[in-house]
Amino acid sequence: MSSLTDIAIRVLRQREVGLLLLIIVVTAIVSTVDPGFLAVGNLKDILVRSAPTAIVACGVMLVVVTGEIDISVGSLMALLAALMGLLISRHEWQLSMWVGIPAVLLCGTLIGLLTGTLVTLGKVPSIIVTLGLLTALRGATTLLMRGENIDGLPEGLQSLAKSGIGGLPLSVWTAMGVLMFTGVIITHTALGRRLFALGSSAYAAKMTGLSETRLKLFAFAYTGFLTALATVVDVPRLPKIESGIGNGFELLVVTCVVVGGVAISGGRGRLVGVMLAVVLLTMVRPVLTFLDVGEAGEKWTKAIQGLFILLAVITDTVVSRRPTGSARGPVPVKPSSHLESEGAPA
């Protein structure tokens, strides 16, 4: 066993390092082809595109850390966008922004709480609850919008979302705030430790007296709140609100969380990794544009995103199977997945 592969394996074990290397390599290649890729305007564009994903990924990451999953955020975003349009656009109810936006945030949180309640008290698996909501909320959105697009959001909100403060749109500032807040929750609060403890062993967490119900309720409600926040700051950027908003968004977010190194079985993962994954996956489309592969290239976006997840999981398995020379042995493979461990000793 040469020391070089040893080092390579040790580097790849740190998901963040691998992702960062990948981002740097891709950026280097693209900017040699077209230096315009590194222009401030383009970098800003990538930031703006990644902002809503980053905001929601903070919530979904916590959900996954507790061993659950949320695949309803895309439809929730559409429903909240429609609600926001109805409440504050000048063609509809014409409520004040200061009433409408808190209402949207509250509604997002309540739907998150509802999901959490069904999962914890209703004991329905989270994948099923959110699958059902994915369908139901999308239907509710189209029903709410009666097949028409909504425009005419307040000017102030639109300009904040587009040009923003200090040259960066509102969504980017919000994403930074949410990131810091979530980072503090994870590393500096008991709540964060408890979420991870619950994810690594639900049984042990229960024995220590942690409330599984309350922790999971928090994770789902937080995700709902963040989805509403992302809707409020990002959707006004668009010229009009359509019912197709957020289509496939849930999968993008879950992809980012998984590629970012959060274990789907819960209990393991870092926010930095998730954010790097958000940037990497958001870069795919601009990169294809800049490589000048034209219309033909854009059609490959989904294939490349899928490939990234596969790459991430394969590296994970290969790397964790090969022990390095150090005392750090192979990562033990959990015998049961989070789906099965649900029925833990009663």
């Binding site: 999953i69 999968l251 879950v254 789907i264 294939a303 899928g306 490939l307 997840i309 999981v313």
Partner: peptide, 18 residues
């Protein structure tokens, strides 16, 4: 490879369509 089916088929969900 012992990867969770949810993750594998999520990846191929995007990859096959792509």
């Amino acid at each position: 490879m012992n990867v969770h089916p949810l993750i594998v088929t999520l990846a191929t969900y995007a990859a096959f369509r792509g």
